[in-house]
Structure formats: C-alpha cells, structure tokens
Design a protein around this nucleic acid. Structure first.
Lengths: 191, 191
DNA sequence: TCATTGACTTGCTATAGGGCAAGTTTTTAT
DNA sequence: ATAAAAACTTGCCCTATAGCAAGTCAATGA
C-alpha cells in the first residue's frame, strides 16, 4: 500500500518517522479504473495525489473542443492541479486515469495542515513546487526550441514504455501535435 | 530605493516589520545598464532579483546559435534562474537587462537563511515558487493551444507597452517565432 | 557627425505540421 | 462472439511559419 510512498518520502530533507506516520494516517490508498475522472473543470482540486502505478493525465478542452494534455504523471510522481489547489479556485482542467491507476491521496486541508505544522510537510510541498516548476520549464524549452520529432525523442527517453503503454492520441496531444502527424512521425522515425 | 519592494512584501502572508527590515538589510539596490549580463551559462545563479523598473530577459542559446527567450521580468516581478538557484547547479541560460533596469538583489545564502529562519522568508519563497509555476503553466498552455497571433494578443494584454518598450526581435523570441513572422504579424494585426 | 552596426521590413520560396476523408485495426460492451 | 465504437493509418491538399536575400531605417560609438 504505502511502502513505495514511504520509501520516496524517506529521501526528503527533514524526514522524520513520526511525521511520516502522521501523513500516512491522513492519506488514503485508492485505485482508479481506466478513464475515471479524478477532477473536472469547475471543481476545486482538493486532493494531492501520489502515483503508485499507472498514469494520470491532466488536460484542458478549448473552445473548439480540442483536448490539450498538460501533464502525464507516471509512477512516483506527485500530481495535483496546483493552480486550483494552491489558489483554491475552480480547475479549468480534467484529471483522468489513462489506465488503471493506483494512487495515494491526501486531502487539501490535511495536506496544508501538515505543511504548516511539520518540517517534513514543508519539505514535501517545497519539493513538489520546485519539481513542478522545473518540469514545466523543461516543457517550455521543448515547445519553444524543438521540433515535434525532438520532443517525442525526449519523451521516449524519459518514459521508454510510453509508446506501448498509453494511447497514441494522448501522447500526440501532450506533444502538441495531431494524431495524424504523430502517426507519421512514429512510422518514419520510431519503428 | 526599497519603497516599492517593501510595499509588495507587505502583502505577503506572515508579514512582519522586523523580518522585512532584516531582509532589506541583506538586500542591495542595483542599476544595470541596457544589455548588461546578470548571469551567464556555466555560472551558478547566486542572486534573487526583484525588478523595480526596466526589464530582465532570460534566454538560452541552442546549438545553432538561436536565442530562446524564456522569461521577461518587468516591474514588481521576482526573477532568478530558479533551476540553478534551487539546485545549486550551473545555469544554462543568460539573464540580461533589456533596457536600463533597477533591481533589488539578495544573495542566495542570505535568501535561504531568511527562508529557513523567518516566516516572511518562507512565505516569499513559497510565493515565488507558486507564481513561477503558474506563470510557466500559462506559458505552456499558450504554446500548446494557441497560434502565434493569439500568443501575441495575450502578451500585449499583459504588457500593453511592450511593443514600444523593448526590441521586437526579443518579443519574437519570447513568443517562439522568427522576427520575420513577428514583423508580418504586427503589420497585419496590430497597426 | 559620419560610419558602422544592428533593427526592422518585405518579396519570394520552402517546410513542418494541420486536417479531411476514407480506410484498417483494435478495443469494448453486450 | 459479435456488433459498435474507438484508435490508428495514410493519401491528398492546405496553412502557418521558417528562412534567405536585399532592402530601409534607427541607434550608437569613435
């Protein structure tokens, strides 16, 4: 259940057994089936997730009905709609399980109480924000400076199993290209 | 000197006069001429800046020598290469003043000491990370879901003076388009 | 102040990627 | 197991943007 979660927490600065147990007592293990919605637009994101297995997908839908995948959270990743979670405002995006996905969940109120009252909590929150920032920075670099092919190469490097583990149209959407272009890209360069 | 900086800090949670004075005692007021470098690749970013006036530009240069502008920091913005600053690793990018720019600077060691020891410091750091995240998130959305023209419209909305205050090739680079395309865009849609 | 350099424009052509349509294959639900 | 619905492919053509070249205009330094 919590083993993997705990083993990740042990690497945080300010780690402390007692504080970890407190966090785990507030957290919950949950399994989502493929395509379950964890969050929908208009709702405030009141949960922090930690992915044990599977994959969570964050996406928005624009006026034309096009889905834009913002983030893919695989094993060991923390995942939450931080904009909504932090500012306590309605989310503009969906969180959905791409495949059957096992997560550790902690509610927003509990999360911030732990953040306020424990060093480990502060450390976790700081780490989540830092990583979120660095991840999105890298993502901007790739959009700004790379062609679609390079972005895909980089993604495969980070998630070697991605081509066989999640639908291609989701990868395409994450890369900011159409499924048509994606299909051609894979055909020409990755098969 | 520090008036504007102080007035911004007053809005932070955990605000406290004494802690603010401590921070200001560690901070320094500095003016950079147009095109001065505040940071170059290979150096660790050891400063947190707060822009009083002018504009700081963050950019990287890729293998082909193309400059990619990552961030433009105008008045009231905190600015630092967070990836380098946080992880204490060499920067991959430049920070440069686009025009004459007045900043408040605080050194990394002092900054983290304040962050560790004062609530206001924690609050500032948390706020910087949160805003950095939200800013970059929005930037990804605009790259992923918008055409160049929409990105420019959005930027002008946020910085109405931008077209007349900084070189167009820098705006183009920030938007991820060539100066040619930028020139045509402005001609057709914004003049 | 003049010469030089950099900034901006614009015609032309090239290319990455978009998007429809119509297929094939795979998945899913009954 | 089978029908229906998704997912994926691919031919064709289209559009946004790239990028060169050659020009004009503006800023800057000796």
């Amino acid at each position: 259940m919590f083993e993997h979660f705990k083993s990740v927490l042990k690497n945080f600065s300010g780690y402390d057994d007692e504080q970890m147990e407190l966090i785990c007592s507030l957290a919950e293990n949950k399994i989502f089936k493929k395509n379950d919605y964890l969050l929908t637009p208009g709702k405030i994101c009141r949960h922090m997730y930690f992915v044990n297995s599977g994959c969570l997908r964050f996406f928005g839908v624009n006026e034309e009905g096009v889905e834009n995948t913002r983030y893919l959270g695989f094993r060991s990743k923390f995942a939450s709609n931080l904009t909504s979670f932090i500012q306590f405002i309605p989310s503009e995006e969906y969180i959905q399980s791409v495949v059957e996905t096992e997560v550790i969940v902690i509610g927003r109120t509990d999360f911030y109480r732990v953040e306020k009252n424990t060093l480990l909590g502060k450390s976790i929150y700081k780490n989540i924000l830092e990583r979120a920032y660095i991840t999105t920075q890298k993502r901007i670099y790739s959009f700004q400076g790379e062609m679609a092919e390079e972005r895909l190469t980089g993604l495969i490097l980070k998630e070697p199993e991605i081509l066989s583990s999640i639908p291609h149209k989701i990868i395409a959407s994450y890369l900011g290209i159409t499924p048509y272009t994606f299909s051609r890209l894979v055909k020409n360069k990755f098969s």
